[in-house]
Amino acid sequence: MEIISKFTIGSEKGISDLITIIDSSADNLYKTFVSEEDIKSYKNGIDPRKMINELNDLSNQLIMTYADQSPAGYSIIKSGSVYPGIADGKRATEISFVILPEFDSPELRLSLWKKCRSAINFTDEIWINMLSHDPLLAFLKELGFTSVAEAHAGPFRLPSQILKMETGKN
């Protein structure tokens, strides 16, 4: 399998690939907790123009990962965002980290992580609000993320954990 992780701009093609992953991911992550009707309503409410505007904000970056040219995962990096409990004077960067189950493999996870990590070497802390039942949670902890708080995330406010990683920058 050919795996490619690359920075993607908020273009129609980039957003189309991102929405493909979001739609499939929503089905996988929410089906046990939320009705099909609510998931469908959420997916129908995704506004591509709003996403393009958000991704074309200079403080945000999108990394897409492809497996044999099919959209397989993504990470959105948001510079300057904070979470409760961050120390004063620390620079924090929020990430999302999503890989579709049908493409999930150690190689794909590492490809997306390495590209993501290369983009955030300027920050003091990386943080993510990850659903507690997300299978990628264990992978992030293996990388060195630690749980700092329980929270709720996603469009349905399901139980989640806020994870952080110190980057070693001061």
Rank of each mutant, 00 (worst) to 15 (best):
E2Q: 12
E2M: 05
E2H: 08
I3H: 05
S5L: 09
K6L: 13
F7G: 08
F7V: 15
K13H: 02
K13Q: 14
K13C: 01
K13S: 11
G14K: 07
I15S: 03
D17I: 05
D17R: 03
D17G: 00
I19T: 06
I19W: 08
T20P: 03
I21N: 03
I21D: 06
S25A: 12
A26E: 01
D27N: 01
N28A: 14
N28H: 13
Y30K: 01
Y30D: 02
K31R: 06
K31V: 04
F33Y: 12
E36F: 01
E37V: 12
D38P: 00
I39S: 03
S41E: 09
Y42C: 00
K43E: 00
G45A: 14
D47H: 08
M51Q: 07
I52S: 10
I52N: 00
I52D: 05
N53I: 02
E54P: 01
N56A: 02
D57M: 06
D57W: 01
L58V: 12
S59P: 07
S59R: 14
Q61L: 02
Q61N: 12
L62E: 05
L62W: 07
I63E: 11
T65F: 01
A67S: 15
Q69M: 00
S70Q: 09
S70V: 10
S70C: 11
A72P: 02
A72E: 02
G73M: 09
Y74Q: 07
S75M: 03
G80W: 05
V82Q: 15
V82F: 14
V82W: 11
V82M: 14
Y83V: 12
Y83W: 12
P84C: 11
I86D: 13
G89A: 05
G89N: 11
R91M: 11
I95E: 07
I95A: 13
F97E: 09
F97R: 12
F97I: 03
V98D: 06
I99F: 03
P101S: 06
P101N: 10
P101I: 01
E102A: 05
S105T: 13
E107C: 03
L108M: 08
L108P: 09
R109A: 13
L110Q: 15
S111D: 10
K115S: 15
C116I: 13
A119Y: 11
A119P: 05
I120N: 00
I120F: 01
F122W: 15
T123R: 10
T123Y: 08
T123F: 07
D124W: 07
I126M: 10
I126K: 11
I128C: 10
I128A: 13
N129D: 15
N129G: 07
M130D: 04
M130N: 14
S132F: 01
P135L: 08
L137T: 12
A138G: 05
F139R: 08
L140S: 12
F145K: 10
F145E: 13
T146W: 08
V148W: 09
V148E: 14
V148L: 09
A149V: 10
A149G: 07
E150H: 15
A151W: 07
H152I: 13
A153I: 03
P155W: 01
P155Y: 01
F156H: 04
F156K: 01
R157D: 12
P159V: 06
L163K: 04
K164R: 13
T167V: 07
G168P: 05
